[in-house]
Nucleic acid binder design. Structure first.
Lengths: 146, 146
DNA sequence: TATCAACTGAGACTGAGTATCGTCAAGGTG
DNA sequence: CACCTTGACGATACTCAGTCTCAGTTGATA
């Protein structure tokens, strides 16, 4: 749960209008913990009696993605999800139990990419790295239950 | 273009029936170069007048994925695709120009995962790494055109 | 407060993937 | 070889994420 001001500021800076639906979507995202899908936000909006159309939620997520305020991730199941995040290059560590995500830098990656480039002859332009595991909280909870 | 025998053998070993449609799908995959979607195979089958139902193609791809004869990858566009591959842990380098893919080991990855685990406290269980770039052939072709 | 382009919501549409179900055929058995 | 069981098949209907269209609305700016 982060506050919405970062997203709102980013919108403003990029020259986009600050509309009510966008504010609502930013808030829905801020109230989320871990990754979420467009469908989750649609459900949240409906439950909170906040009037935001389905199409608008998709459009807004696309816009926020463009602003790097959220990022798309692909879960091992093959489903798409979004996570709120900082606008710098990083990767996500995703808890497969509670869905919470953490951002990391994965400093070793440039070396790995260089190594791959050398061995394959590819000119590497980008990469996608997602790590899945169990977060400290869930490890604790599991340990206590056992 | 690989031969289909590896897939056929894998099916047999795992105790699955060797049916005509499965043989056809294996062949369609072997005739492909680079990544492909289920829809591509459906189109290929139709074009080659090979009678394989759409549902069967999806089912067969799921089965082959389970046997690690193919693997799902997520393109930067967000689309899903499949690539034929060897049944050992590895990663894919995908040419964003011609879609051809190469398998690499990315030896540095365990170290990166360990580092992330240490810094976040997560117990890392799995990861997904995909690299995107330009393959040597396309680099050549681009260079010659310029 | 008037203007106008950017934005919105409703709803139709598309296309990937899944579920159902009656039929068929692979492969083991006698 | 003929039979039988059961896994696999194709057709088709369905679901659901995501996109498109368009008439109506709203936020920034003068």
């Amino acid at each position: 749960m982060t506050d919405t001001s970062a997203i709102v500021t980013a919108l403003d800076l990029a020259g986009y209008r600050l509309t009510e639906p966008r504010r609502v979507v930013a808030e829905l995202i801020a109230n989320r913990d871990g990754h979420f899908s467009a469908a989750d936000l649609v459900a949240d909006a409906r439950q909170g009696r906040l009037d935001v159309g389905r199409a608008t939620i998709f459009r807004t997520l696309e816009l926020f993605t463009e602003l790097h305020a959220v990022e798309r991730v692909d879960l091992p199941s093959g489903d798409h999800a979004y996570v709120e995040c900082e606008p710098v290059h990083h990767h996500h560590v995703i808890c497969s139990q509670c869905a919470r995500t953490t951002e990391v830098e994965a400093c070793g990656m440039p070396a790995v990419a260089r190594d791959v480039a050398r061995r394959t002859g590819f000119r590497i332009q980008s990469h996608r790295l997602e790590l899945f595991g169990i977060c400290p909280d869930c490890q604790d909870a599991n340990g206590r239950r056992a």
